[in-house]
Amino acid sequence: MMTQPPVAIVTGSSRGAGRGIATALGSHGAIVYVTGRSQKEGQASMPGTIHATAAEVTAAGGQGIAVACDSSKDEEVAALVERVIAEQGRVDILINNACAIYDELSMPGNFWEKPLKIGDMINVGVRSGFVASWHVAPHMVKQDRGLILFTSSPGAMHYCFGPAYGAHKAGMDKMAFDMGVDFADAGSKVAAVSIWMGALTSERLLEMMAAEPEKFKHLEGQLESTGLTGHVAWALYNDPKLLDYNGKTLVGADMAKHYGITDLGGQFAPSFREATGIAPVEYGAYKVK
């Protein structure tokens, strides 16, 4: 039986979804390692730092620990996990949220008309999530319990911001499935899942909506808080039936409703599946190893 609060790592948590997820986990009493590159305001185009998020985690009731980590650098990710194990002796929840998102991603134009750097989100996203999971997995398997969660979106199944964005989201979903197969084959009680988040109350989207209200009018009343996925992650981790979700891509709003987790205005978050009929891929059971 655990004698300490669950230990979580949330990558890319200076702002946006990561910040909300980290703070939500903190509200449940978790020890949360907040990672990212922004240590001072002004270092990024959007506000937010790892230290501010860590303070919010602690204020929410948990313990926030800020760690500067560039998820594009394997050695920094390795050092992060080594530090967590040295200080806490375990990792219970890993939220793979780090991603390189540039302002140009959402600008008009075809993918070849935008800077090549927008492709970085495939590296700082898919690959960095694999690297973090690779370092965390042996510890979770040894302790025979854990949750690896990838933050994804319906952009995995429909066009949204172009091929780099789509490849990133589809990659997260498939990686969760394949990791889940390996965890199951190992007979472990570790689960890997991918969560489709909705349109979030992130600093970036709120700024975009304020700048072009007509363009984003359809999102009025359709937003999901950045913290919802953190509450869903907590519910999943504590669910005795966690392994039933291993390898699956889940719609966050649907899971929140399943667990009775309300969101903005005390209402259940709007479900993309219900609104559009678009659902995550059900990957096949056939495998070659």
Rank of each mutant, 00 (worst) to 15 (best):
V67H: 03
D254I: 08
D239H: 05
K73L: 14
A22I: 07
Y237H: 13
A66R: 02
S106V: 14
A8I: 04
V91D: 00
A164R: 08
A210F: 03
K117A: 14
R15A: 01
V131T: 04
A86L: 08
G265T: 13
A60F: 07
G20N: 04
D144N: 15
D263R: 04
V7S: 02
D92L: 04
T49M: 03
I261N: 09
D70H: 08
D120N: 15
W234H: 11
G12N: 07
G171L: 07
L105H: 13
G260P: 05
G20W: 01
V190H: 06
A98F: 10
D178E: 13
V281L: 13
V10Q: 00
A184T: 13
S38E: 05
S13Q: 01
K114R: 15
L242W: 04
G125I: 09
T35D: 03
G227Q: 10
D239P: 06
H28G: 00
D144W: 09
P6H: 02
P115S: 08
A164I: 03
I122K: 06
A275S: 14
D103Y: 08
A30L: 12
P47E: 01
D92M: 06
R19M: 01
S128I: 05
S202V: 00
E274F: 03
A279N: 08
E214D: 11
P240G: 10
D263C: 05
K257Y: 05
V84W: 02
M2L: 12
R15M: 00
E82C: 03
V34K: 00
L94F: 04
L242G: 02
A275N: 08
A68N: 07
A137W: 08
M172H: 14
G162S: 09
H139R: 10
A52I: 13
D70F: 07
A60C: 12
T249Q: 09
G36N: 06
